[in-house]
């Protein structure tokens, strides 16, 4: 079983387009959407059925005004600006429990709170698909990513060859969590200044994890000069370019039709198949 994680650094470069195309193309796979802030993959993969699970991301503190003597000790120890006038703002509360432990009147409750849901689904080809929804404004998205991956990867059938993970944007905690157990990372980038800037930061992060990766340049014909720049940079870093996808309205039309690009355009399907065969090739090479 091999796990492929699709990342980008910058948002909106085409992670979900590529992930959904792989998911459609491959047999014997599990698909996981790790963008728990803004999950989109289910819109294209259209699960047939789903089981819902609740996610408890940590504890939150609240003050019982009947017991509170307004000594102010809690406010003085809170480093997250969550305490004002003996009331705790649940959105600012980091769940450290310092106030709860320090309160001399036992006036603070500290309880597990629900911070999201995750779903185990069946796709039309009978494969499993997992995604999650963080409640608005919740923290601990990295922990939810770990939880959903853990639940997806326990009791995996022996026939499963591929795990496709659609990653979150950025380079912070949910990205780190999505990388655990990865065999190969497909980076989707675009030939824009922001795309390149964020690509470089992501590659620096991947180096610290020593995970092999390859690059897909999406919208490559938007700025061929910058596409060349990315190609040159990839060469210097010894990272393979897995393929080039054009700036083409078909990609948006496919999303608007709630379809993966491989269902929508036979030309794009060929491009994606080529990219996938390079993923397999470079993953094998990297073993040696």
């Amino acid at each position: 079983m091999k796990q492929i994680v699709i990342l980008s650094g910058k948002g909106g470069t085409g992670k979900t387009t590529v992930s959904s195309a792989f998911a459609k193309l491959l047999q014997d796979k599990i698909t996981i959407d790790c963008d728990v802030d803004a999950a989109n993959l289910y819109l294209l993969l259209k699960p047939q059925s789903r089981n819902q699970f609740e996610y408890f991301g940590g504890k939150k503190a609240s003050i019982n005004p009947e017991l509170c003597t307004q000594c102010g000790l809690c406010e003085s120890v809170c480093r997250f600006d969550a305490l004002h006038n003996y009331v705790i703002d649940p959105l600012s509360c980091e769940g450290c429990g310092f106030c709860y432990r320090v309160c001399p009147d036992d006036a603070i409750e500290f309880t597990e709170t629900k911070s999201g849901n995750y779903f185990e689904c069946n796709l039309i080809d009978d494969s499993k698909f997992y995604y999650a929804k963080l409640l608005p404004g919740e923290g601990n998205s990295g922990k939810l990513v770990s939880e959903i991956k853990k639940s997806a990867l326990t009791n995996v059938g022996e026939n499963i060859k591929w795990v496709i993970v659609d990653g979150p944007p950025g380079i912070g905690c949910p990205v780190n969590a999505s990388l655990s157990g990865a065999d190969f990372v497909v980076i989707v980038t675009e030939p824009t200044q922001s795309g390149i800037h964020d690509l470089k930061r992501l590659i620096e992060l991947l180096k610290t994890f020593s995970i092999k990766c390859g690059i897909v340049i999406n919208k490559y014909d938007l700025n061929e000069k910058q596409t060349l720049q990315i190609t040159a940079y990839a060469g210097k870093e010894n990272i393979p370019v897995l393929g080039y996808l054009p700036f083409d309205k078909d990609y948006i039309e496919a999303i608007k039709a709630n379809k993966t690009i491989v269902e929508y355009s036979s030309k794009a399907a060929k491009d994606i198949e080529n990219i996938w065969s390079k993923v397999e090739f470079f993953m094998d090479i990297s073993k040696n």
């Binding site: 959105l91 404004g137 919740e138 998205s141 944007p169 950025g170």
Partner: peptide, 14 residues
């Protein structure tokens, strides 16, 4: 703001 709807975004927008 950063993208998303979690703690980083809330911290930025509040």
């Amino acid at each position: 703001s950063p993208p998303g709807t979690s703690c980083s975004m809330v911290e930025t927008v509040k």
